[in-house]
């Protein structure tokens, strides 16, 4: 869980940074997308890096979802009878119990749409593969505001997921002492906020016409 989670975190940070190319204009963004595909050419075949990354990503995602399912089923068996009286959580990661699993599901649904939208372009008006910029802009036009809302929702879910996920992964892998645990929690929160904001800004910018 932790290892796959960390890989996903690394991807998500890189992805967010990549998305910010949007603000540099169509050429830069498309060049970046192109660069990813032609990295190492002609030594390496087309899209090598991208596929290595994709395979790693798929493996991580599968491992991540699989272990999430295992953990969830174990938890269900570990508490076969629920409490009659339930209370809000009061632990150090008090949103985690409520947000991690449902948040994960939200992210999965989002991803399906997202891949159809921006990778396969099935649901995107811009079918021209190299024009990532155009696809992004087309995706978030004001008329398609529900798409923007869906993205924002996913980004919020992701923020919660990261807030807990990052420190949780550090706790699982490194086992920090009290001082470092508190620091990790702060870092996790910061990363979560930055990543969420970094993602959210793109659709918002497009929707409100700052990028077109």
């Amino acid at each position: 869980m932790a290892v796959s989670g960390v890989l996903l975190v690394l991807f998500i940070i890189a992805h967010m940074a990549g998305n910010l190319h949007v603000f540099e204009g169509p050429e830069e963004m498309n060049a970046y997308a192109h660069g990813l595909r032609t990295f190492g050419e002609p030594l390496l075949p087309h899209e090598t890096l991208l596929w290595i990354m994709r395979l790693g990503l798929i493996a991580a995602a599968v491992a991540h979802i699989a272990s999430a399912i295992v953990l969830t089923r174990r938890a269900a068996r570990a508490r076969p009878v629920r409490y009659a009286h339930r209370r809000p959580a009061r632990g150090e990661s008090r949103h985690a119990a409520a947000t991690m699993r449902w948040g994960g599901v939200v992210i999965v649904f989002f991803l399906v749409w997202h891949l159809l939208d921006l990778t396969f372009r099935t649901v995107n008006p811009v079918k021209d593969a190299p024009d990532a910029y155009g696809a992004v802009v087309a995706s978030f036009t004001p008329e398609r505001w529900p798409v923007t809302v869906l993205y924002l929702l996913a980004v919020i879910a992701l923020g919660f997921h990261l807030r807990h996920g990052i420190w949780s992964a550090v706790q699982t892998i490194a086992g920090p002492d009290h001082k470092w645990r508190k620091r990790t929690q702060i870092i996790a929160l910061a990363v979560a906020v930055i990543v969420s904001a970094g993602f959210a800004i793109v659709p918002l910018a497009v929707t409100f016409g700052l990028v077109s």
Partner: peptide, 10 residues
């Protein structure tokens, strides 16, 4: 038969 820890801190 205990569950796994996901560091929720409860």
């Amino acid at each position: 038969g205990f569950g796994g820890c996901t560091n929720t801190g409860e």
